[in-house]
Amino acid sequence: MAILVDANTKVLVQGITGRQGSFHTRLLKQYGTKVLAGTSPGKGGSDVEGVPVYDTVREAVEEKGVNASIVFVPAQFTKEAALEAIEAGLSPIVLIAEGVPVLDSMQILARAGEKGVTIIGPNTPGVISPGLCKLGIMPAHVFEKGVVGVASRSGTLTYEIAAGLTKAGLGQSTCVGLGGDPLVGLSFIDVLELFKNDEETEAVALIGEIGGNAEEAAAEYIIKTNYPKPVVAYVAGRAAPPGKRMGHAGAIISGRTGTAESKLEAFKRAGVEVARKPSEIASKLREALGSP
């Protein structure tokens, strides 16, 4: 039944009247995502791509029964929009913006934790369960319904890898972009836990990168839980020097923490197959799944 989003996801688009918001509302609807409402303070009563626009999240919930949100407002306003969606109990909430202040993310995530709401991002392409629901900005054509669960810290690299999987005949149950920021809502462990209990998912691909220790923590979790499904991992940034931000705010080696070597070592210790090139992920997954 996929994870996080599926055919029952009723979507609110926050910031629907903006350039990004309206453009992606069209693409989401084209994909078949149930976009039932949008918000844009001061513009309630209008519509975008046939979707009714409300001034407040509360009205959208009351009138349309939305249960998830994708937030397109600029980084400076993301905290306010996210808190409004959290208070209304929407879950998951996808935060697309890059450049959200870390302090804002900290408060968003703390409040979401109290309310039991799932935050995806910030700085994420979102989440897609191919064939069921797309709650993100990813190019839909590279994804196909199937049995591989994908969790990734990056955007375009995920599209690259998903395209490779699809080409190799390996569809995906759900692909989750965790986000490229230092603080994000979902960790690899959270997603592994969801995939563990998802019947659709038979194997998992983890796409990590330098910075932080989310990959090391995932490796420990895999050992501790004797994880029941095969996992293949790829870590970007082996060629990255310490102390430099590699594009993503979170992709930085600080002191001895966050190196690609440490992450690859941890995965190997956990018995995770490590791909050295993006294209190897598909071949290693095929092997693990016993496909010819």
Binding site: S154, G155, L157, A236, G237, A239, A240, M246, G247, A251
Partner: peptide
């Protein structure tokens, strides 16, 4: 994209 560029390196 940061991840794709890192992977290229």
């Amino acid at each position: 994209g940061a991840g794709l560029t890192m992977a290229t390196l």
